[in-house]
Design a protein around this nucleic acid. Structure first.
Lengths: 171, 171
DNA sequence: CACAATTAAGTTGCGCGCAATTGAATGGTG
DNA sequence: CACCATTCAATTGCGCGCAACTTAATTGTG
């Protein structure tokens, strides 16, 4: 519904842009939260939150790695991971121990319980896929699109941060 | 590096599903946060966070409406909106006053300052669009896809909540 | 060897997002 | 009219996500 009149003025092109913009950012925001909600319901059985599930996914494939590497896989920093891992440890799913080689580093390792949880998690993807109503190809296409988007956005955010030089300085 | 083979066994379909699943949920998660990051940089000038910007977008179109309606537009509840609106009010952008007609309801209204901010916000969409590197059609297509997804996910979450799966679930 | 610079985790503070609860106002029913 | 269910906003509690800072270990440079 773009054509609605605006109280006290006509539509300039900028007005349309502003409305269109709402559609985009809001759609992604809403989709992300909707996804989160479905995961919440399904992961409740496993006693995991959505981000915790992401961490477990990585660990189920790597089985042992330092917090730093974990953060690179998930694009999360220690400010997010430290308390999250502490909760996973309290739940008995992982153990954290400082590396003997480099005492700055902390190795995260699955416990037997953590490994065992993988079996129960195997049913999750099917239930999620069913919830989306999308088939495998559609999901793959969407994923590729989102990855493009993320790459572009990350590059833009990086370019944005340092300086606001109007004159072209580093592209 | 697990590649496609899994230590000590062949790939069951479930293994692949679990891997694929990581791709999908993670992609959306990452895209959402990447978007958030770009908005953060651009909105800093306006003194708004990303969710606050979404609220302002709605108010710029409606100019006055109760918290309930605002929440329906944004799919947010009072638990999120109340403190957010309190911050917007502290920033001088909105005012909240209980409806005389129905004293349960609180009307949110833009201040002059809030209305004025709209002019400065007009440049935001262009900068965002530039950051994505997508053209208008691509964005529209993606948005439509995401909206489909959200609708399906919401329906699934709603169906999930009330009843328990008939087949035994708790280990 | 001594001493800064760098790196890794952890901590603090703030703002969502959501479930659950509270409190006040309204509406419906007998 | 009295009573109860519903509705709306606000509050509480918890878990991210991120910026900024702190602490400790390692690296590098003279």
């Amino acid at each position: 519904m773009v054509g609605t009149s605006y109280p006290g003025g006509m539509n300039t092109p900028d007005d349309d842009w502003l409305r269109l913009d709402q559609q985009i950012c809001f759609s992604l925001h809403a989709a992300s939260r909707a996804f989160n909600g479905v995961y919440r319901g399904i992961l409740r059985d496993l006693g995991l939150t959505y981000p915790q599930y992401l961490v477990m996914l990585v660990l189920w494939e790597h089985d042992e790695l330092p917090v730093k590497k974990l953060g690179e896989h998930l694009r999360l920093d220690s400010g997010t991971l430290s308390p999250l891992l502490k909760r996973l440890e309290a739940a008995g799913l992982v153990r954290r121990e400082r590396s003997a080689r480099d005492e700055r580093s902390v190795e995260v390792r699955l416990t037997g319980e953590g490994v065992a949880l993988r079996r129960r998690a195997l049913q999750v993807p099917r239930r999620i896929a069913a919830s989306t109503g999308f088939d495998t190809d559609e999901i793959r296409t969407l994923r590729a699109r989102l990855d493009e988007l993320t790459t572009a956005l990350d590059a833009a955010a990086f370019a944005e941060q340092p300086g606001d030089s109007p004159a072209g300085e580093r592209s």
